[in-house]
Nucleic acid binder design. Structure first.
Lengths: 278, 278
DNA sequence: AGACCTTACGGCCGGCGTAACAATA
DNA sequence: TATTGTTACGCCGGCCGTAAGGTCT
């Protein structure tokens, strides 16, 4: 029977033009390749080459065969990739979240409940999350609102509320609560990786400038060494503590408090059931 | 590397359900198949089977792999078929003709001029011939008129004229020529395999009944043992002689005399050039 | 007992590299 | 002389079949 290694050799000959060069590239001796091509030719049952005394080249059959061969090889590679990718996916729980904080506990839970699975996670906007859930890019997504798609199932999985972290000398430092509108115009430090929260300040405080920090370290250093206000949340305080030398004032806008929902496809529920039984 | 024979084995296992049966079908021992599948699995790098103590079955990876494998095998088979068909086509001159008589000499010429080629030929109506020439089903066609397609090239290649073959006692036996209309209403013997000629008598002599003979032998026997008139042509006379005991009267209608044209695609001309240099 | 899968063992075929030869540029 | 393709020869790895062992119905 014709075998893939022969097709590999055939396409190598097409690429390199001579048996010698092809044999080099294939890490084999040139006589071996000669014999292998003779055998292939006899298995096709039709001539594939034009032979001069010291020159071998494709005839039209051979050119056609080499094209076909490439397609067969591509498909074989495609098979390997496909099966390996499928296997990897079946050992991976992919979680997408609208914000980093609720992701942390969900990833922890998933790792504990499914110790043999690889947990992959990322933050995205809500629309791509929902798209990704439908296309099975994610098995689980975390949204800041109840999804209304009938093919989804979900549980409430926590909440997060924003606070202003003000320097003690700030004019609003003694308030019990603040609307963002009241802070509009004040420049603030802002940590970049906050998911869907990112759009809220810019929307509600159009006159403020936000000093966006991509590095967590830079963000925390600047809190310590400046008197700029910034945002924190109950979850971030729970995780990292209160920033030193800041007064914590609740943000009163209703948009500043959300309930998170852990969502999956009904179809996929069995695979991640344990996460819904907490 | 993964090889086709392993994929063949994989799909056999899918078809037959157990290694034993698959091994039988593949004419190999069952331990051999066990080992081969183990090797395949290790080459995929992911588990393909669920193993009980005395039962082997696909897991989801394996099912997917078997589907992919079938596609690879199909494509490999497709490659073989494609190349072999291409090779055969390149050694074949396929000739289509509107009538059998001009085909004979053309096929003879082709066989002489291209002794290494296989000559295949058939009779069809003019429209399918032209279609077939365009789609390269034929390299050459023979038409009873000049083609007007710009992509065709052609030469005149003979002519054929019809005659009535009447019994000597026929009322028209002494005529120098006859129009078909004059014979309308008389029953006639008709040989079936006459190509485009077939439609002419029925069209011009609607009141006649034609006793169509599919067998050449039956046709000739009936000429000898009856007094029914029939058609012959100059070419048929040249080939088979005049029918015994018949008077040959020219058919005067203009449709009863045609000039034949040998036609090929301009593109394909080099392949059949010699036939156009006669 | 029969069907099935796996492991162990030894034979052998076929693909491999080396060497030698022939032709070409 | 350097490069290329083909043929001859002998080695050896890997695939094969047989045999044996274990499990399940």
């Amino acid at each position: 029977m014709i075998e893939l290694y022969q097709l590999e050799q055939l396409t190598a000959f097409k690429r390199y033009g001579t048996l010698s060069k092809a044999a080099d590239e294939l890490h084999m001796s040139q006589p071996t390749l000669t014999r292998s091509m003779q055998k292939l030719e006899s298995e096709f049952g039709v001539p594939l080459f034009r032979r001069s005394k010291n020159r071998l080249e494709f005839n039209e059959n051979g050119l056609l065969a080499a094209e076909y061969a490439q397609r067969v090889l591509d498909q074989a590679q495609n098979m390997l990739d496909g099966v390996r990718t499928f296997d990897r996916a079946s050992h991976t729980i992919s979680i997408g979240s609208c914000a980093p904080m609720p992701l942390i506990t969900t990833v922890q839970n998933a790792a504990l409940l499914y110790p043999d699975m690889t947990i992959s996670s990322e933050c995205k906007d809500c629309e791509p999350l929902i798209e990704g859930l439908k296309t099975r890019l994610y098995q689980i997504i975390i949204l800041p609102y109840k999804p209304d798609d009938k093919s989804f199932t979900f549980i409430e999985s926590g909440s997060e509320s924003l606070f202003f972290a003000l320097p003690p000398a700030h004019r609003f430092a003694d308030r019990d609560g603040l609307y963002m509108k009241e802070m509009d115009g004040e420049n603030m430090l802002l940590y970049a990786d906050i998911g869907f929260w990112r759009s809220l300040p810019e929307q509600m405080m159009p006159h403020s400038r936000f000093l966006v920090q991509n590095e967590r370290f830079a963000f925390e250093e600047l809190i310590n060494s400046s008197i700029l206000p910034c945002f924190v949340s109950d979850l971030s305080i729970q995780r990292d503590g209160k920033p030193a030398d800041r007064v914590i004032i609740p943000v009163l806008d209703q948009e500043a408090s959300v309930t998170y929902y852990t969502v999956c496809l009904r179809n996929t529920l069995p695979k991640v059931q344990k996460l819904f039984l907490i």
